[in-house]
């Protein structure tokens, strides 16, 4: 199970949740969200290290180094920063 480490020190395991946003919410992280399908961009976070895989290509503008947890899963252990 890939580990998800937050810059705040919180650490969680990605345990077959539908996507990273669900996993972070289950871990009681204060997440921004709106559409939950990759087009609004409200949930964007920074990917510090590791890699993620998109379940489908998001429509929202995603800057280099950022990703949308609502439509992605970790591909390895990852370090991320919430806005």
């Amino acid at each position: 199970m890939p580990k998800v480490r937050l810059t705040s020190g919180v650490e969680l395991e990605f345990d077959s949740q539908a996507n990273l946003l669900d996993a972070l919410e289950q871990a009681k992280q204060p997440m921004n969200y709106q559409c939950r399908e990759g087009f609004c961009g409200a949930c964007r976070c920074t990917l510090v290290s590791g890699s993620i895989r998109y379940l489908y290509e998001p429509l929202a503008f995603v800057r280099k180094g950022e990703f949308l947890p609502c439509c992605s899963v970790p591909d390895s252990d990852i370090d991320i920063e919430l806005p």
Binding site: C35, C40, G41, A42
Partner: peptide, 13 residues
């Protein structure tokens, strides 16, 4: 509107 603002953000970026 969420879609529209994404469109405008794309243009700006």
């Amino acid at each position: 509107e969420a879609l529209h603002l994404t469109g405008t953000q794309h243009m700006l970026n």
